[in-house]
């Protein structure tokens, strides 16, 4: 069982909503997952499926209001995150959990030098003085593969290319030796070669530093390459969750299957045509009362439109939230 392992981060039943003028947006609907030390958990899902909101909810990085965490438990390193004071929370942010965001072009502050921005977490979390922080910042830049690191500390973000900026972001996220790194689509905004470099870099850093990673992406191909486990999100819920090889071998949820079909053939021969999933992602105006994927699902039957499926175990390291049974092709007996 996965639960038997030590966990560094455990999220149970997390529910996040946005109270907007046009009503409530149910962005994250009772999401549960856990992360073992040193493990790499991939999270995939379409745009708008709530991946970012889930991660930001963990450390209350969402603007509140409109965002509100209405339910769930978040346990990090044995501590209850939701009960933390602002000060405690700040010590975790950037100190014990590092963040990398999607768009390196806008994630850095344009008017401060890269050195200043890397030194900030070093100074507040590790209490380093200016000089020590500068030395450590140069080491970090070197670690993430930026040549001529000491000199480049004085440069501003606009003097770096997109890939280099993402390296700087990684340096900031890793500055205080975090136990967990959350990478929210760190390569989506980069071109393919740079993307590969960044993935290589993070793989390498993971070996060196041994932190656990949550890697959010649209791209199952990337997941196949780096993740230990995957969670598939749809409409703010985890619909399937398994170890990587298991998921690719034995996908259960029709949505996962559809996602896998959209992948170009791994062998490179491209036998199947690249296709997208028909239909629109659901509106999140109501809390899910039935399977949110049902309207787009080729296997849907009456129950799917009446009841929202709970996650059920398929095997030891594999669970799925679906009324349809991929093995039998009929209704699951849960």
């Amino acid at each position: 069982m996965l639960d038997a392992r030590a966990t560094i981060l455990d999220v149970a039943n997390l529910k996040t909503v946005f109270n907007t003028r046009d009503g409530m947006v149910h962005a994250v609907n009772h999401v549960s997952f856990s992360l073992a030390p040193g493990e790499l958990l991939g999270i995939v899902g379409e745009s708008g499926s709530g991946k970012s909101v889930t991660m930001m909810s963990l450390l209350k990085l969402l603007p509140m209001p409109p965002a509100e965490i209405t339910d769930g438990d978040i346990t990090f390193d044995g501590r209850d995150v939701r009960a933390m004071s602002d000060d405690e929370l700040r010590r975790v942010r950037g100190g014990e959990i590092g963040f990398i965001f999607q768009d390196p072009m806008t994630s850095l502050n344009p008017v401060f030098t890269v050195g200043f921005q890397i030194m900030e977490p070093l100074r507040i979390h590790l209490g380093l003085n200016k000089k020590a922080a500068r030395i450590r910042a140069a080491e970090l830049l070197e670690l993430v593969g930026i040549p001529d690191a000491t000199a480049r500390l004085k440069d501003f973000p606009h003097q770096f290319s997109g890939g280099m900026r993402q390296r700087v972001m990684i340096a900031i996220a890793l500055a205080c030796d975090p136990k967990v790194l959350i990478a929210d689509e760190p390569t989506t905004a980069l071109d393919v070669t740079i993307q590969a470099q960044i993935i290589e870099l993070i793989k390498e850093l993971r070996q060196k530093l041994g932190m656990a990673i949550i890697w959010i992406t649209h791209d199952l191909g990337v997941i196949a390459e780096i993740a230990d486990r995957v969670a598939v999100m749809y409409a703010g819920q985890i619909v399937e969750h398994a170890e990587v090889s298991e998921l690719f071998k034995n996908p259960q949820h029709p949505y996962t299957r559809a996602l896998l079909e959209t992948l170009p053939d791994m062998s490179g021969t491209r036998s199947k045509r690249l296709r997208s999933i028909d239909g629109q992602p659901p509106a999140l105006g109501k809390a899910p009362s039935h399977c949110e994927f049902a309207p787009r699902c080729t296997h849907a039957f009456d129950r799917c439109l009446k009841e929202n499926p709970k996650r059920r175990d398929v095997s030891d390291n594999h669970d799925v939230a679906c009324w349809w049974d991929a093995k039998t092709g009929g209704a699951a007996d849960a």
């Binding site: 994630s107 502050n109 900031i172």
Partner: peptide, 24 residues
């Protein structure tokens, strides 16, 4: 986005506002 980065670094709200945002 850089404001979110500043918060994710663990900076105090005051620093985020009066250093990062105000300067821009």
């Amino acid at each position: 986005d850089y404001v979110r980065t500043a918060r994710a670094k663990g900076l105090k709200e005051k620093t985020v506002l009066l250093v990062h945002v105000l300067r821009n």
